[in-house]
Amino acid sequence: MPVAAHPDFALLSDSWRLALEADGYSPATVRSYLGAVRNLATWLADHHPGTGPADTTRDQIRAWVVDTRNRTSSSTARTWFPAVRGFFRWAVEEGECPSDPTDGLKTPRPNDQTTPVLSLDQIRAILGTCNRATFRDRRDAAIIYVFADGGLRLAEVAGLTVDAVEIRDRILFVEGKGTNRSGPRRRAVPVGVKAARALDRYLRERRRHPYADLDTLWLGDRGRPTLGADGIKAALQRRAALVGVKLHPHMFRHTWASQFRAAGGQEGDLMVLGGWRSRQMLDRYGRVDAAERAQQAYRRLALGDRL
């Protein structure tokens, strides 16, 4: 039978929750942090029964991190370790632990991850499934263009309002990822002529929808008033399946970033347009086709061709 975790973990986690909430952490972050501590407590119960927060050692933390990477992923270990470190630092400050077992340990390094991108032919094929003058086809075509041309996240696309679309200036006003303390990050995202035309066609079709007075940009069909993130994802995957493409909406963002870099766009501009503050994420998005970009660059610069 599985051994129960030391009761002090649950007791102190309840108190730590109050501290996190008082500091303004979002409910999602609080849940994530508490889940990490709960996972450590369960792991300790399995591998070192009877070990409580005050007894946890640095070597045990190291072993838990290694096991987490092997059981789940590098990204999970990188997310959970700072949460556990925050828990023990709080416990030391509160006098519940004599020392911090994470002291001196570094956040686990990420694996060398790559991210799949879509080819232009695949995007054209998906758009080709939206070739009728119906509400659903015009809506889905506009959604695909917004993803492909604006590089938006799924939540950002789902959160668009009618007022966020400026057809004449070809601009989308987007609320991006933020924190509970600083709020969402707002940015203006330009789109091309074809994307603007697709949005214009959808907005004209949208006027005849029974729920056209709603602020939400994307309206549903088959009696549904709106189309949320799950509905957008399902619509895209349904279109992609028709042409034999396995798709996740975020692949559009990766493709957009990759194409921008391949076309000679500056990294600083890409970070602003994409709403990134971390070079690490930018590097991850560009890694998958870095070799192809390097080959294309050398074909333009080949020394032998200039002799």
Rank of each mutant, 00 (worst) to 15 (best):
R138M: 13
R186A: 14
L20A: 01
T29V: 06
H209T: 10
G286N: 13
C97W: 00
W276S: 08
V174D: 10
S99W: 05
W256Y: 15
A141I: 02
F260C: 03
L44C: 01
V92T: 09
N111C: 02
A45W: 06
Y202M: 12
I232G: 05
S74A: 09
R138I: 01
L301E: 12
F260I: 02
I144P: 07
R17V: 00
A229T: 04
I123L: 03
G275W: 14
F88E: 00
R201Q: 15
E21N: 01
G104E: 10
Q237S: 06
L11S: 11
H254Q: 06
V288E: 14
Y145W: 15
E267R: 07
G275V: 12
T56S: 05
T72A: 01
F88R: 00
P53G: 05
D163A: 15
E292Y: 09
D137A: 14
M251W: 07
F9T: 03
D140S: 03
L160P: 06
G265N: 02
R197K: 10
A195K: 04
P225V: 10
F252I: 06
I171E: 05
R204Q: 11
A257N: 11
G286H: 11
R124T: 12
A54Q: 07
Y202H: 12
W80V: 00
R62K: 09
G50R: 08
Q259T: 06
W80F: 03
L12C: 04
R201W: 14
T56M: 04
R253V: 10
A188K: 12
Y211F: 15
T134Y: 14
A142P: 07
T107K: 08
V288Y: 13
A83N: 04
R239D: 04
I123P: 02
Y25N: 06
D67W: 00
W90E: 03
V245Q: 13
E166R: 14
R78I: 00
Q122W: 12
T102F: 06
D215H: 13
P27E: 06
L307W: 15
H47Y: 06
S73P: 00
T56I: 02
L301N: 13
D55H: 10
G104R: 08
T216G: 10
A235I: 03
L172C: 07
D46T: 02
R253Y: 11
L301T: 15
R185K: 15
G176Y: 07
P7E: 03
G24N: 11
A263G: 09
E21C: 01
R306H: 15
A241F: 04
S182L: 07
D112Y: 09
S278P: 02
T79N: 14
E267N: 08
Q122K: 03
V245C: 13
A41G: 05
A10R: 02
T161S: 14
A133H: 14
A229L: 04
T115R: 14
R293S: 10
E292S: 13
T129W: 08
E267K: 03
R58E: 11
R89L: 09
G176V: 11
A297W: 09
W64R: 00
L44I: 01
A45I: 04
R253K: 13
G231L: 10
A188R: 14
K177P: 02
R204F: 09
D67E: 13
L303Q: 15
